[in-house]
Simulated assay, not measured.
Amino acid sequence: MSALEPALRSLADALLDAVGRQDWAVADAELETLAQETVAAMVANRTGDLATLARLVARCHTALSLSDGLSGEAMHRQGQLRALALTIAAARGRAPPRPADALHAPGTPAAAILSALGSGPQTCPALVEATGLSAEEVGSALPELRAAGLVRSWPAGRLTVNALRSG
């Protein structure tokens, strides 16, 4: 048990109590604190605390799911818990980016994208056309290329432009 677990458990209990009392200001404050602790654990890569948060958020969501006659306000908090649970699950499931050498390996989607970006910045549809890859393959490779620091992206209207990161 981490040193933070009793405090997080108390926070989850206070959230459930506040929802039971229909004290929405307190419920929102407790939800916000849970979200802040989640972000802090994500940034610091505290996997133990993320596991604790996952259990507690699931417990709160389940408790609300089993409640009879939830009000609209309570269902709203239940939805927020579900979104927080998804965020925690995504943080726990992320893998560190592969080394840049592996991303440059010939025959990989990442290598094809890097080669296409060698001619200059391109949108995702242009990368699909230039590489012959599917939209899903390009969409899967770009976040890893960004995480490895090889590609930078920025919005341009409804599209996203991608370019090789210089230096």
Rank of each mutant, 00 (worst) to 15 (best):
L66G: 08
R55Y: 10
A110D: 06
A40C: 01
M75I: 08
W154A: 00
S10Y: 09
A156D: 08
A54E: 15
P121C: 07
L4W: 12
S67E: 11
M42T: 13
P106V: 05
N45P: 13
G167V: 10
S67M: 15
A89S: 10
Q80S: 05
D49C: 10
G118V: 00
S71F: 11
S166A: 15
L150K: 02
A135G: 03
C60S: 15
S153M: 08
G69Y: 15
H76S: 15
I113W: 00
L8D: 03
V57M: 02
G132V: 06
E144M: 11
L4S: 15
G157F: 07
T47N: 12
R92T: 09
S166D: 13
A3E: 13
A40V: 12
I113C: 01
A135W: 04
R165Q: 01
G72A: 10
A156K: 12
P6N: 05
I88N: 08
G93K: 11
A116S: 07
R21E: 11
G93S: 09
L53T: 09
A12N: 06
A102K: 04
A40N: 03
E73Y: 10
A40H: 02
R59Q: 10
L117G: 00
L34Q: 04
C60V: 12
D101Q: 13
A91W: 08
A90C: 14
I113K: 00
A58D: 12
D68E: 15
D101L: 14
V26R: 05
S2N: 13
A147E: 06
H104Q: 12
T52N: 06
S153K: 04
S115P: 01
A148S: 06
E73W: 05
L16N: 01
A135H: 11
G20I: 07
Q122N: 07
L15M: 04
E137N: 05
R46N: 13
P121Y: 08
Q78V: 13
P143T: 00
G20L: 03
Q80H: 14
E37L: 07
P106D: 00
R59A: 14
Q78R: 12
P121F: 05
V151F: 00
S166T: 15
V161G: 05
L64S: 05
A63M: 01
G149L: 08
L16G: 01
E5G: 12
R9E: 14
V39E: 11
L56A: 10
S67C: 06
E129Q: 09
E144P: 00
T108V: 11
D101V: 15
A130M: 10
L4V: 14
